[in-house]
């Protein structure tokens, strides 16, 4: 464990807890893409299924349980909670996320570390995580401006992946055989997807107005 990875995990944890807290306290999910939340639930379900078979550390197990629990409860809130679900604008959140699930699955069948169920699902979860934010970014473009909590959520998610890139660089130089091209490339693609959001996010911080994304 290195500081970049710990900071990355804590930032990731903060992003989901900030979102869950927002939805729970103000009983609203305005501006949040249910599609992105469902994709993240699939990412965690397919990546953490080894939770019950391989024990790595208490930290690892605890974090996996928290991520699984929070992502599925966010999906539950938006789909099922009688008050929260009313604030979900499904006619804006129209990104056909099956169009990204299938290509990621096909890609995982082609590119993986080993052709086993666990490895293919692991690669699938990495490809899916890289593009899971797309419905949320599309929704942000549509709704033009966003409230601060949604901005913070996307910002923390981007920061978590950027910190992970530092972690991979650190591990590459400190651990001889630590090579995970699949993780590195999908992680890099994911961070690049956030790049333009970061640009507008910092612009809005500068003139500290509402975050206006270009049409």
């Amino acid at each position: 464990m290195n500081i970049f990875r710990l900071a990355g995990d804590l930032t990731h944890l903060a992003s989901v807890l900030v979102l869950l807290l927002k939805i729970h306290t103000i009983k609203s999910c305005a501006g949040i893409s249910l599609k992105t939340q469902e994709l993240y639930a699939i990412v965690f379900a397919t990546r953490y299924l080894d939770l019950f078979t391989t024990y790595i550390s208490l930290y690892n197990t605890l974090m996996k349980l928290i991520f699984l629990g929070s992502s599925f409860s966010i999906v539950w809130y938006i789909r099922k909670h009688k008050i929260v679900r009313r604030s979900y604008d499904k006619d804006q959140d129209t990104f056909r996320h099956y169009f990204i699930v299938l290509p990621c699955f096909v890609l995982a069948l082609i590119i993986h570390e080993k052709f086993t169920v666990r490895e293919v699902l692991w690669a699938f979860s990495l490809y899916l995580e890289a593009v899971a934010i797309l419905p949320q970014l599309v929704l942000l473009q549509r709704t033009r401006n966003i409230d601060n909590l949604t901005g913070q959520y996307v910002f923390l998610l981007g920061a978590y992946r950027a910190l992970y890139i530092l972690n991979w660089i650190y591990r590459y130089f400190t651990e001889p055989h630590f090579v995970h091209w699949i993780t590195w490339i999908s992680g890099l693609v994911q961070t690049l997807l956030y790049a333009d959001f970061f640009y507008y996010y910092f612009q809005s911080m500068k003139n500290n107005g509402k975050l206006q994304l270009p049409a």
Binding site: D9, D50, K64, T116, Y164, N167, H180
Partner: peptide
Amino acid sequence: DSDSEDKDEL
């Protein structure tokens, strides 16, 4: 090659 056991990252 990196065996699948060293998937210690979240």
